[in-house]
Design a protein around this nucleic acid. Sequence first.
DNA 1: CGGGTCGTTGACCGTGATCAAGTAACGTGG
DNA 2: CCACGTTACTTGATCACGGTCAACGACCCG
Lengths: 247, 247
Amino acid sequence: MPNSSSCFSKMLSVYVDLTDEEHEGIARLEKTERTIGRDEMVFTEGDVAEELYIVKSGWLCSFRNLEDGQRQVVQLHHPGDMCGYHELMLRQRTSSMVALVDSVLCPLPKSALTKLGRETPRIALLIEAIVSRELVAIVDTLQAIARSQALERVLHLLLFLYHRLAVINPLVVTTGNFRLPMTQSLIGDMLGLTNVSVSVAMKELERMGFITRERRTVTFIELEKAKERVDFKDRFQDADLSFIDTA
Amino acid sequence: MPNSSSCFSKMLSVYVDLTDEEHEGIARLEKTERTIGRDEMVFTEGDVAEELYIVKSGWLCSFRNLEDGQRQVVQLHHPGDMCGYHELMLRQRTSSMVALVDSVLCPLPKSALTKLGRETPRIALLIEAIVSRELVAIVDTLQAIARSQALERVLHLLLFLYHRLAVINPLVVTTGNFRLPMTQSLIGDMLGLTNVSVSVAMKELERMGFITRERRTVTFIELEKAKERVDFKDRFQDADLSFIDTA
DNA sequence: CGGGTCGTTGACCGTGATCAAGTAACGTGG
DNA sequence: CCACGTTACTTGATCACGGTCAACGACCCG
């Protein structure tokens, strides 16, 4: 399989030019594959955390089951993402991970990072940078939850997904639409809402002319107005990794 | 200044035994110091992000000013923390940072991480691990905000601070108390509440016998009951970094 | 055709926001 | 050391958003 077909390489290449050696290093990481069917669990809260994953294809979701029966969705994972690194320092999984659609993962042991650091230090740094950006994305979500109401929360999520998916699929930009394989309950569990308020919010977003919906496909009609409405910042732009080469 | 006095070394040593070489590597990072007075800004949203910091002493806080005049506190920084790394991959600061009390920082350029990766790869990995744990902490906050009410949110924050401060100051555990140099408005801005509900929540926590307050000092009376109440998980325990040495 | 999941709609209610007034603590200068 | 002004905290009244409960409708699959 040619290197160029690696989603992870593709994601990294958005930000730096990879050398042949680095391409090979990544290809080695993706040697093994694991196929996950829809609704299948990759791991469960409390499991011993030994691996990280690179998402080759599909959609996955990390979540926690709370004591009172509620659920908190922590993160969504798309092709090209690294995931499962929340427990890099911890013995046990702090969340469970489930596939929302049939997916393919490349598992790698935590120690692969040690190796990576020695052999291709630039990649190791890049991963560090990407983790830190993921942190910014989660803070964005936190802010949306803490400081805006249902409508804005839902709109923020849709905008985030639009921009995230556009990175690996330019079609999203040209058509303005993307598939959203999440139930409204799941969206609610991500945003601290109930399925009811998600339903109301999405209807209202449609009525206001921001989006249209067709089954599970969402189309943005007024992207710019939408971004303005929630003061959306695209963290996938504005990258600057020049520090990696100057040492 | 002897290496052992470095807060950062102390934090790292909690999890791995550092070699002399590694101690020296850290000491080099902390060569320069910058003193920050109370209420002084370290950097502001939109600034070009060129540095990271290690907190030598004090309390600092990262926050964002929202369009509508609200504020979102993103993170608190204590002695031994690394901070300012949210923008590792980004050109511009996504938040501002201010000192809550007189503080001392050690600034280091982003490129120091590149150097660190080459010279003391274990430390680089450790930093990576710590960043990922910070991510877990922020997810914990997100969960508290999204899925619990005012009383529980405030209690969660107090418990977090108790355990965080205990890492560097054993006195916190023996006395059960710590200083909280935050106004209730600031606490509200962290938890998505108003100063009013924070006030009510703290009064109620006192009435219920979880804590007592004396000025800005908080004392836990019923620590275990409190942890149970919010299902608090101490992320500063349960560390496992064995993967760092096996490569 | 029938069972199940998912989404929509409506009625009611509770938590916390908002507004406002009053109290306590702090810092500054006389 | 006190008088003053400022900031922080407390308390109460009102209101709105979203939760809860429930029923219904749409779509999917066997």
